[in-house]
Design a protein around this nucleic acid. Structure first.
Lengths: 334, 334
DNA sequence: CTGAAAGCGCTAACAT
DNA sequence: ATGTTAGCGCTTTCAG
């Protein structure tokens, strides 16, 4: 592989001139510039980004740390983030931590050793203590999709407005006339969604009783199990809000297995709008957090830190919206 | 951030000694080693991987190039690959090309400029011409999940044994007693799957007629459309094999929309075993390519090139297996 | 066992 | 407009 020095020697100029010709930052006579560019092209010269990074103290690389890219929530978001990053000339190093703190710590250390320009860290992928340590050592970091309560306010954060997301779900069910509704929620992490949901029903004078709230763990299995319990209640809910789509999907399966129909017997609404939710029959009605907006906000916060633009606000909320499919309808006996 | 020189100065030894102490490659007296390690630890010293890479000509980074991580086939595979890479101390740079050749070319160039130690390239993510060019310039490359016919034999390739995968699907349907079967296939790319399928039926004396084969494009929509056509045939198939799960899912929807039942009226079998296929009702029976095995084989081929182990065979086939769910059963009128 | 010196390929002041 | 020099932080001969 040809290097800059090779070119310099071959043409009979200094390295500086070659840099200048190649980057176009300083003045070089048209004649020599042409000779240099042409020769570089002939040799198939590619600058060594490693050397460049070392000299400039900047790698144009970011780290993306998440629990597992195989979890259906992340692929779309990761795609959007990688796209945003690329638009700003950044490349993305993917790190799965499998929610193992030690692994997350290692991966992060490694990224820092590589001098990544910044890191995007998804919820549950790392210990906050490790994150804070790195942040204090001036590593640009943005938290993405974390619940606000858990995170220190000084670290920039981008996430969906989960309170409003919960409220949206509630409003949708209310509009259909549902009064006896249940919630499957992964507390405490997803409490905002629950609060948003309950607040709307409270406004309407309806209290969601404690037995209508079931604990889930964001998996379809836990949703299945939670729904089973709800179905045994003397007064069955006419609709269920699950705070993640996976739990909603599990709940839907439980209902069908019980011989009931969705949405005729029970309506189901989720939150996430996973790609799979559109493939189900019936399609799952869900509250979506626009993933590309989330990605864009995340990258903006990261770039602001990298470029040391001191902009005040460090939390970005992304507006959720309702995706109407076939899993919700009017209650049969309102 | 403390550097090696800082440590050397502080302790009063040379950089060489520090390196030796830190890497443990050469001999250092126990006393000085301890002092160095301790001081390094106190300072929170982290080696600069960039400098190290530049000096060693090795980055411990690989590129993973794929059409889009948002496509449901890739996340599990990407997870597995990242895991394998990490076990060998490699980090993974994620590149989505959106099947745009220019973009793929750029991304690849960028990776090479970064001196990645090797690249894994998924089907449809890049132009073969670009790949071949880089391969000839000694960039370690492994193709993953490409159809064999399309790729030059000299470039290492790992993929599922699609012929056998098709055969497995056929054997499954045959065992259930299906005789009138249809195929939805994304030709020409997925012709091996079709051939495997047809060969088994041929052995059983059954020819899959041309009208029982519908062209799809690996999307659920195309599967939906193809199934619609099949349903209009005078003699409806009792089972459909779709060469990708997404097409199978689309086909399933078409059948349900037509007022028929899966599997009672028509059985459906897919190929890929996507995570979503297990979430559907009925669950989709599918032929799986074990993703972690595929990942492992891919990494092995890549590491072999990076380490210049000259092992002969360059194509690795991974054995598919059947995942039985609820979308297949006996034909009602065999 | 330890150190001096050269070099990885590039950038960036500072001359000329 | 071009060249000289120093340096990014580490590894790696080669001497001592």
């Amino acid at each position: 592989m040809a290097t800059m020095s090779d070119i310099a020697k071959a043409i009979g100029v200094s390295k500086t001139t070659v840099t200048n010709a190649l980057t176009g930052k300083s003045n070089v006579s048209e004649a020599t510039r042409k000779r240099i560019l042409q020769y570089a092209h002939e040799m198939g010269y590619r600058p060594n980004e490693l050397a460049r990074s070392l000299a400039q103290g900047k790698t144009f690389t970011i780290g993306l740390i998440l629990p597992s890219i195989a979890h259906p929530f992340y692929p779309e978001l990761a795609d959007a983030i990688e796209n945003c990053a690329r638009l700003s000339e950044y490349q993305t190093v993917l790190c799965n931590t499998h929610s193992i703190s030690a692994l997350g710590g290692q991966q992060m250390d490694r990224l820092v050793s590589r001098w990544v320009d910044g890191c995007i860290i998804m919820e549950r992928s790392m210990d906050l203590a490790d994150i804070i340590r790195h942040f204090q050592q001036k590593v640009p970091i943005v938290l993405c999709d974390w619940q606000e309560q858990q995170t220190p306010p000084e670290i920039p954060l981008a996430r969906g407005d989960f309170f409003r997301a919960g409220a949206l779900a509630a409003r949708h069910l209310l509009e259909y006339g549902h009064q006896r509704v249940a919630v499957i929620v992964d507390e405490p992490g997803q409490i905002l969604r629950l609060q948003g949901f309950c607040s709307v029903f409270a406004e309407a004078g309806i209290t969601v009783s404690r037995e209508m709230m079931q604990q889930g763990y964001s998996t379809s299995e836990s949703g299945y199990h939670a729904a089973q319990i709800l179905l045994t209640l003397p007064e069955r809910p006419t609709a269920i809000f699950a705070t993640t789509d996976l739990m909603a999907i599990g709940a839907m399966e439980a209902i069908i297995d019980e011989g009931l129909r969705v949405p005729q017997d029970i309506s189901i609404i989720g939150l996430d709008d996973l790609m799979v939710s559109s493939l189900l029959r019936p399609g799952l009605t869900s509250v979506a957090i626009p993933k590309d907006q989330l990605a864009r906000n995340t990258m903006e916060l990261l770039l602001a830190q990298i470029n040391e633009d001191q902009n005040g606000s460090v939390t970005r909320l992304v507006e959720p919206y309702l995706v109407l499919r076939q899993s919700t309808t009017f209650p049969r006996n309102p």
